Computed example of a mutant assay.
Amino acid sequence: MGLTYQRPFSVPFYESDRFKNMKISNILAFALQVSGEQSVELNRSDVWLNDHYKLFWAVTEYELEINRLPRFMEDITIETEATSYNKFFCYRDFRFIAENGELLLTIHASWVLMGLESRKVERVHDDIVAPYAADKSSKIQRSHKFKKELLNPEVTSYPVRFSDLDMNGHVNNAKYYDWAADMIDYDFRASHQPKKVYIKYNHEVRYGETVEALFEMDMDGLTSHHKLNGNATEIEIEWTKNNDE
Protein backbone atom coordinates (compact mmCIF):
# COMPACT_ATOMS: atom_id res chain seq x y z
CA MET A 1 0.00 0.00 0.00
CA GLY A 2 1.13 3.54 -0.69
CA LEU A 3 1.57 6.78 1.21
CA THR A 4 -1.62 8.13 2.76
CA TYR A 5 -2.72 11.74 2.33
CA GLN A 6 -5.51 13.35 4.39
CA ARG A 7 -7.29 16.65 4.42
CA PRO A 8 -10.29 18.03 6.35
CA PHE A 9 -13.39 19.16 4.50
CA SER A 10 -16.69 20.81 5.43
CA VAL A 11 -19.56 20.19 2.99
CA PRO A 12 -20.69 23.56 1.58
CA PHE A 13 -24.16 24.61 0.44
CA TYR A 14 -23.27 24.59 -3.27
CA GLU A 15 -22.13 20.95 -3.15
CA SER A 16 -25.30 19.75 -1.39
CA ASP A 17 -28.44 18.48 -3.09
CA ARG A 18 -32.13 19.14 -2.44
CA PHE A 19 -32.02 16.74 0.53
CA LYS A 20 -28.84 18.17 2.12
CA ASN A 21 -26.61 15.33 0.98
CA MET A 22 -23.31 15.92 -0.79
CA LYS A 23 -23.80 15.31 -4.51
CA ILE A 24 -22.10 12.25 -6.00
CA SER A 25 -20.63 14.35 -8.81
CA ASN A 26 -19.09 16.70 -6.25
CA ILE A 27 -17.75 13.74 -4.27
CA LEU A 28 -15.97 12.50 -7.40
CA ALA A 29 -14.73 15.98 -8.30
CA PHE A 30 -13.33 16.62 -4.84
CA ALA A 31 -11.70 13.20 -4.72
CA LEU A 32 -9.73 14.26 -7.80
CA GLN A 33 -8.82 17.50 -6.06
CA VAL A 34 -7.42 15.59 -3.06
CA SER A 35 -5.40 13.20 -5.21
CA GLY A 36 -4.02 16.24 -7.05
CA GLU A 37 -3.01 17.83 -3.74
CA GLN A 38 -1.05 14.72 -2.82
CA SER A 39 0.64 14.78 -6.23
CA VAL A 40 1.68 18.40 -5.69
CA GLU A 41 3.04 17.48 -2.24
CA LEU A 42 5.10 14.68 -3.82
CA ASN A 43 6.36 16.90 -6.67
CA ARG A 44 4.32 14.97 -9.25
CA SER A 45 1.72 17.61 -10.13
CA ASP A 46 -0.17 17.79 -13.43
CA VAL A 47 2.21 20.57 -14.47
CA TRP A 48 5.26 18.38 -13.69
CA LEU A 49 3.71 15.48 -15.62
CA ASN A 50 3.09 17.72 -18.63
CA ASP A 51 6.53 19.32 -18.54
CA HIS A 52 8.46 16.06 -18.17
CA TYR A 53 6.37 13.55 -20.13
CA LYS A 54 3.59 15.40 -22.02
CA LEU A 55 1.05 13.14 -20.28
CA PHE A 56 -2.06 13.55 -18.18
CA TRP A 57 -3.98 11.27 -15.81
CA ALA A 58 -7.38 9.91 -16.86
CA VAL A 59 -9.77 7.89 -14.71
CA THR A 60 -11.04 4.73 -16.42
CA GLU A 61 -13.22 3.25 -13.66
CA TYR A 62 -14.84 4.12 -10.36
CA GLU A 63 -16.47 1.86 -7.79
CA LEU A 64 -18.22 3.66 -4.92
CA GLU A 65 -19.35 1.84 -1.78
CA ILE A 66 -21.64 4.16 0.16
CA ASN A 67 -22.71 3.67 3.77
CA ARG A 68 -24.16 7.16 3.86
CA LEU A 69 -23.52 10.42 2.06
CA PRO A 70 -21.80 13.36 3.78
CA ARG A 71 -24.30 16.00 4.88
CA PHE A 72 -24.47 19.77 4.45
CA MET A 73 -22.05 21.52 6.87
CA GLU A 74 -20.70 18.18 8.10
CA ASP A 75 -16.98 18.18 8.92
CA ILE A 76 -15.28 15.13 7.45
CA THR A 77 -11.81 13.86 6.57
CA ILE A 78 -10.95 12.71 3.07
CA GLU A 79 -8.14 10.19 2.90
CA THR A 80 -6.46 8.78 -0.20
CA GLU A 81 -3.62 6.50 -1.19
CA ALA A 82 -2.25 5.02 -4.39
CA THR A 83 -2.52 1.30 -3.72
CA SER A 84 -0.79 -0.42 -6.67
CA TYR A 85 0.17 -0.12 -10.32
CA ASN A 86 1.22 -2.16 -13.33
CA LYS A 87 2.56 -1.22 -16.75
CA PHE A 88 -0.70 0.40 -17.88
CA PHE A 89 -3.00 0.94 -14.88
CA CYS A 90 -2.68 2.69 -11.51
CA TYR A 91 -5.10 2.12 -8.65
CA ARG A 92 -6.09 4.56 -5.93
CA ASP A 93 -8.55 4.44 -3.00
CA PHE A 94 -10.39 7.29 -1.29
CA ARG A 95 -12.14 7.18 2.08
CA PHE A 96 -14.60 9.80 3.36
CA ILE A 97 -14.62 9.64 7.17
CA ALA A 98 -16.94 11.32 9.69
CA GLU A 99 -15.67 13.12 12.81
CA ASN A 100 -16.57 10.11 14.97
CA GLY A 101 -14.49 7.80 12.76
CA GLU A 102 -17.46 6.37 10.85
CA LEU A 103 -16.52 5.34 7.30
CA LEU A 104 -19.04 7.14 5.12
CA LEU A 105 -17.94 5.91 1.72
CA THR A 106 -15.07 4.36 -0.19
CA ILE A 107 -14.03 5.01 -3.77
CA HIS A 108 -11.86 2.58 -5.72
CA ALA A 109 -10.46 4.26 -8.84
CA SER A 110 -8.48 2.99 -11.82
CA TRP A 111 -6.29 5.39 -13.79
CA VAL A 112 -4.21 5.49 -16.96
CA LEU A 113 -1.70 7.94 -18.36
CA MET A 114 -2.60 9.48 -21.73
CA GLY A 115 -0.59 11.49 -24.21
CA LEU A 116 -1.65 15.12 -24.48
CA GLU A 117 -1.30 15.07 -28.26
CA SER A 118 -1.92 11.41 -29.14
CA ARG A 119 -4.89 10.95 -26.72
CA LYS A 120 -3.68 7.35 -26.42
CA VAL A 121 -2.86 5.32 -23.30
CA GLU A 122 0.85 5.32 -22.48
CA ARG A 123 2.96 2.99 -20.33
CA VAL A 124 3.45 3.88 -16.68
CA HIS A 125 7.02 5.04 -15.96
CA ASP A 126 8.37 4.04 -12.54
CA ASP A 127 9.77 7.55 -12.14
CA ILE A 128 6.26 9.03 -12.25
CA VAL A 129 4.73 6.81 -9.56
CA ALA A 130 7.72 6.05 -7.32
CA PRO A 131 7.05 8.88 -4.80
CA TYR A 132 3.59 7.43 -4.01
CA ALA A 133 5.19 4.22 -2.68
CA ALA A 134 2.47 2.05 -4.24
CA ASP A 135 3.05 -1.66 -4.83
CA LYS A 136 4.11 -2.69 -8.33
CA SER A 137 2.19 -5.68 -9.63
CA SER A 138 1.73 -7.57 -12.89
CA LYS A 139 -1.98 -8.04 -12.14
CA ILE A 140 -4.70 -6.03 -13.87
CA GLN A 141 -7.71 -5.71 -11.60
CA ARG A 142 -10.93 -7.20 -12.92
CA SER A 143 -13.52 -4.72 -14.17
CA HIS A 144 -17.17 -4.73 -13.15
CA LYS A 145 -19.39 -6.55 -15.65
CA PHE A 146 -22.05 -4.22 -16.96
CA LYS A 147 -25.30 -5.22 -18.61
CA LYS A 148 -24.48 -5.80 -22.27
CA GLU A 149 -27.68 -4.46 -23.76
CA LEU A 150 -30.60 -2.35 -22.55
CA LEU A 151 -33.74 -3.85 -24.04
CA ASN A 152 -36.28 -1.06 -23.58
CA PRO A 153 -34.39 2.04 -22.48
CA GLU A 154 -35.48 5.61 -22.04
CA VAL A 155 -33.40 7.97 -24.17
CA THR A 156 -32.24 11.52 -23.46
CA SER A 157 -29.74 13.70 -25.35
CA TYR A 158 -27.28 16.08 -23.72
CA PRO A 159 -25.20 18.59 -25.72
CA VAL A 160 -21.60 18.89 -24.51
CA ARG A 161 -21.10 22.50 -23.42
CA PHE A 162 -17.94 24.41 -22.64
CA SER A 163 -18.78 24.26 -18.91
CA ASP A 164 -18.73 20.45 -19.06
CA LEU A 165 -15.04 20.33 -20.00
CA ASP A 166 -12.04 19.92 -17.72
CA MET A 167 -8.57 21.32 -18.36
CA ASN A 168 -7.61 18.25 -20.41
CA GLY A 169 -10.23 19.22 -22.99
CA HIS A 170 -12.71 16.40 -22.46
CA VAL A 171 -15.89 16.09 -20.40
CA ASN A 172 -15.17 16.16 -16.68
CA ASN A 173 -15.61 12.60 -15.44
CA ALA A 174 -17.95 13.66 -12.62
CA LYS A 175 -20.44 15.04 -15.15
CA TYR A 176 -21.46 11.62 -16.46
CA TYR A 177 -23.05 10.61 -13.16
CA ASP A 178 -25.32 13.66 -13.23
CA TRP A 179 -26.39 12.94 -16.79
CA ALA A 180 -27.24 9.35 -15.85
CA ALA A 181 -28.97 9.95 -12.51
CA ASP A 182 -30.98 12.91 -13.81
CA MET A 183 -32.97 10.46 -15.94
CA ILE A 184 -34.47 8.94 -12.78
CA ASP A 185 -37.65 10.59 -11.55
CA TYR A 186 -37.81 12.98 -8.60
CA ASP A 187 -40.00 10.83 -6.32
CA PHE A 188 -37.62 7.89 -6.58
CA ARG A 189 -34.61 10.12 -5.91
CA ALA A 190 -36.43 11.62 -2.91
CA SER A 191 -36.97 8.20 -1.32
CA HIS A 192 -33.76 6.39 -2.30
CA GLN A 193 -30.02 6.80 -2.00
CA PRO A 194 -27.26 5.13 -4.00
CA LYS A 195 -25.40 2.43 -2.08
CA LYS A 196 -23.09 1.26 -4.87
CA VAL A 197 -22.03 3.01 -8.05
CA TYR A 198 -19.96 1.58 -10.89
CA ILE A 199 -18.66 3.82 -13.67
CA LYS A 200 -16.48 2.83 -16.61
CA TYR A 201 -15.11 5.32 -19.13
CA ASN A 202 -14.26 3.62 -22.42
CA HIS A 203 -13.94 6.64 -24.71
CA GLU A 204 -13.59 10.34 -24.00
CA VAL A 205 -16.28 12.80 -25.06
CA ARG A 206 -15.30 16.24 -26.28
CA TYR A 207 -16.77 19.66 -26.96
CA GLY A 208 -19.44 19.89 -29.67
CA GLU A 209 -20.60 16.29 -29.39
CA THR A 210 -24.10 15.31 -28.33
CA VAL A 211 -24.35 12.57 -25.72
CA GLU A 212 -27.15 10.04 -26.18
CA ALA A 213 -27.98 8.66 -22.73
CA LEU A 214 -29.87 5.37 -22.30
CA PHE A 215 -31.47 4.36 -19.00
CA GLU A 216 -33.24 1.22 -17.83
CA MET A 217 -34.29 0.06 -14.36
CA ASP A 218 -34.00 -3.60 -13.36
CA MET A 219 -37.12 -5.61 -12.56
CA ASP A 220 -36.25 -5.32 -8.86
CA GLY A 221 -36.65 -1.55 -9.14
CA LEU A 222 -33.40 -0.97 -7.24
CA THR A 223 -30.68 -1.16 -9.90
CA SER A 224 -30.42 1.36 -12.72
CA HIS A 225 -28.35 0.81 -15.86
CA HIS A 226 -27.02 3.65 -17.98
CA LYS A 227 -25.13 3.80 -21.27
CA LEU A 228 -23.90 7.06 -22.75
CA ASN A 229 -22.95 7.28 -26.44
CA GLY A 230 -23.21 3.55 -26.93
CA ASN A 231 -20.67 2.10 -24.55
CA ALA A 232 -18.46 5.19 -24.32
CA THR A 233 -19.45 5.40 -20.65
CA GLU A 234 -21.27 2.71 -18.67
CA ILE A 235 -22.84 3.33 -15.27
CA GLU A 236 -24.68 1.05 -12.87
CA ILE A 237 -26.27 2.31 -9.65
CA GLU A 238 -27.60 0.14 -6.85
CA TRP A 239 -30.18 2.06 -4.82
CA THR A 240 -31.55 1.59 -1.31
CA LYS A 241 -34.52 3.18 0.44
CA ASN A 242 -33.77 6.05 2.79
CA ASN A 243 -33.56 5.15 6.45
CA ASP A 244 -36.69 7.12 7.20
CA GLU A 245 -38.70 5.15 4.66
Results as ranks from 00 to 15, higher is better:
residue 20 K to P: 10
residue 33 Q to N: 10
residue 32 L to I: 09
residue 165 L to V: 07
residue 13 F to N: 08
residue 162 F to P: 08
residue 142 R to E: 04
residue 100 N to M: 01
residue 139 K to Q: 13
residue 22 M to K: 01
residue 237 I to A: 02
residue 159 P to V: 02
residue 184 I to R: 06
residue 146 F to K: 00
residue 84 S to G: 12
residue 163 S to C: 12
residue 208 G to F: 01
residue 243 N to Y: 07
residue 89 F to G: 07
residue 53 Y to A: 09
residue 37 E to D: 14
residue 57 W to E: 04
residue 12 P to A: 06
residue 126 D to T: 10
residue 124 V to H: 05
residue 233 T to L: 12
residue 243 N to E: 10
residue 172 N to V: 04
residue 64 L to K: 01
residue 27 I to S: 03
residue 88 F to V: 14
residue 21 N to E: 11
residue 15 E to Y: 12
residue 109 A to N: 06
residue 4 T to D: 11
residue 169 G to F: 02
residue 159 P to Y: 04
residue 204 E to S: 04
residue 178 D to C: 05
residue 136 K to G: 07
residue 44 R to W: 06
residue 187 D to L: 14
residue 37 E to R: 14
residue 181 A to K: 02
residue 72 F to W: 11
residue 55 L to I: 13
residue 55 L to A: 11
residue 6 Q to N: 13
residue 80 T to Q: 03
residue 117 E to W: 06
residue 131 P to I: 01
residue 122 E to A: 15
residue 19 F to N: 12
residue 176 Y to K: 01
residue 171 V to D: 02
residue 30 F to A: 07
residue 32 L to D: 12
residue 29 A to E: 15
residue 241 K to M: 09
residue 149 E to I: 15
residue 72 F to P: 07
residue 9 F to S: 08
residue 40 V to H: 03
residue 101 G to Y: 02
residue 2 G to Y: 00
residue 145 K to L: 13
residue 110 S to K: 14
residue 17 D to V: 02
residue 167 M to Q: 15
residue 149 E to Y: 14
residue 136 K to F: 11
residue 57 W to T: 10
residue 147 K to P: 06
residue 169 G to E: 06
residue 188 F to Q: 02
residue 20 K to H: 11
residue 104 L to R: 03
residue 215 F to A: 12
residue 81 E to Q: 08
residue 223 T to C: 09
residue 63 E to Y: 00
residue 100 N to C: 03
residue 46 D to L: 09
residue 45 S to D: 06
residue 184 I to Y: 05
residue 34 V to E: 00
residue 136 K to A: 14
residue 50 N to M: 11
residue 71 R to T: 06
residue 121 V to H: 00
residue 56 F to N: 05
residue 46 D to N: 14
residue 138 S to Y: 10
residue 98 A to S: 05
residue 98 A to K: 03
residue 54 K to S: 14
residue 173 N to W: 00
residue 42 L to W: 05
residue 199 I to E: 06
residue 140 I to S: 15
residue 7 R to I: 12
residue 82 A to C: 14
residue 77 T to V: 13
residue 158 Y to V: 15
residue 151 L to V: 15
residue 91 Y to S: 13
residue 225 H to N: 15
residue 120 K to A: 09
residue 49 L to A: 01
residue 87 K to D: 13
residue 149 E to F: 15
residue 37 E to I: 08
residue 131 P to R: 04
residue 7 R to M: 14
residue 179 W to C: 03
residue 202 N to Y: 03
